[in-house]
Design a protein around this nucleic acid. Sequence first.
DNA 1: GGATAATCATGATCTGGATCAACAAAAAGT
DNA 2: ACTTTTTGTTGATCCAGATCATGATTATCC
Lengths: 274, 274
Amino acid sequence: MYHPANMLTHNGLAKCWIYPPELEQLMSKPYNRTPSPPTLEFMSCKDCDMYGMCRLASNGEDANVTNTLVKRRFVLRRGEYLYRSGDTFHEIYAVRHGSIKTYIYSNDGRTQITGFHGRGEIIGLDALNGMRFASEAIVLETTNICEISFPHFLGLSRNIPDLQDHMLAIMSHAILRGQQMMLLLGKKNATERLATYLMSLSRHIDKNKSSHPAYKLTMSRRDIANYLGLTQETVCRILARFQEDGIIKIEGKYIYFVDMDRLANLTSESPTEQ
Amino acid sequence: MYHPANMLTHNGLAKCWIYPPELEQLMSKPYNRTPSPPTLEFMSCKDCDMYGMCRLASNGEDANVTNTLVKRRFVLRRGEYLYRSGDTFHEIYAVRHGSIKTYIYSNDGRTQITGFHGRGEIIGLDALNGMRFASEAIVLETTNICEISFPHFLGLSRNIPDLQDHMLAIMSHAILRGQQMMLLLGKKNATERLATYLMSLSRHIDKNKSSHPAYKLTMSRRDIANYLGLTQETVCRILARFQEDGIIKIEGKYIYFVDMDRLANLTSESPTEQ
DNA sequence: GGATAATCATGATCTGGATCAACAAAAAGT
DNA sequence: ACTTTTTGTTGATCCAGATCATGATTATCC
């Protein structure tokens, strides 16, 4: 399997066994070479999109307490790999807090980013056909990850049919997402791609940051461009135009959504649907 | 849900209950407005990629006889819909023989073909999140379809864990396919796209047709172009160039693979993998 | 079988976004 | 604090593939 030279280490050792929320919070605090990491506020399982699934596994009891599905949580920092292509598959992962990018290689070394994954999202599902990861997952900011042993999950789902149904729905959703990306890459122009992408961030938007809903872009312009089948320069230019037009406002890594209706219109999708 | 005006009828009535192979064969024979339909040779379940799954459902017995998983088979003809976007989801479908294209709409009416599906492939898996079809499936030639009731499947898989695993693997594979398409649409040029597409047909290649492996293109140039994020004209030109270069040979709807090694090199993927 | 409509093919022109280039700003490292 | 590296920004130029146009085949329909 092709791997271009890469400075980043595969820090499997950064993983550690499950620990109480207070300690967890402490562990993700500012740390040597990271001047101002995102503050990792305490997050209850109840705020996680995976809560439904975790609760199903716990027979309806509070998943935050029972930990039936998730046996292990750990923290990874920017630049660390969660898995690499070719790794044998044992676990799937849920993002509890933070963000991760996944990408694949063409055989001549070009890469295509296949997704940015935020809180509550499950990744690694592309590996369970073939039992090896075909993609790579790299962490974009200090990220809290729930690890789910796949054999353990299968065992649980034998007795809890709803859990199986839930997984099928999640995988079906991933297939849908792929189809939407085919539409974006195959039929939309650069402006529409950017607008669609920015709108898709709205799910993670922080409404308490300022007068306008804000989002912290943990990925670089280059990453966004790669994901959308464009170049860095084009992404820059279009973001600048959106800002000139008063649709967004950019301040460093933060993007403020000033006029989301207008942004929605630029996606070529009606704003009500999604 | 958006539906552009369309001449073709949603012929749900073309469906009929399961019937013996001989009758089945008879039913798909030449028929009024179809001057020379593809001859539908008798096909045993053993030749179908779904055989493994059907046999699992039948507890290892011959699926051709037991019909545990598939309760109904039917034939659709060119231009008929298998399902349309917005239809409520009850069944998934396996292509037993023939070919089907699936596509989605952007909200302003552009379409993106999301796949061409041949024998042994399962379609409809994108619907089980939301329980409505998000895509449309239209038949490209006289096609033999196995219908699998999804609730029935779920019931079976409760008692047959391997069946569930098999389904997860199939869905995982569909996710992988989507990622590969993102790479193709996001990073490959027109020549590479065509070469990749033609190579992907090799799975269905008929080696007995002539001196060279042959494939009958049941989809139009326009469909291929749409699928690959190109225009009709570009597809035409590149196919013509491939022919000039002695890589393929085109005769009407048939394409002959003259030099598959050279074709594989043009995909940007090493020929050994895939 | 002959009219009509799709589909396919190929040439001429145009353009959205890539590429190239040069610098500014921010991170990371010492 | 100061250097080095990475990331972001903006302008000038170029080109792969879209668009436009026209005719040749091939299906479809009555």
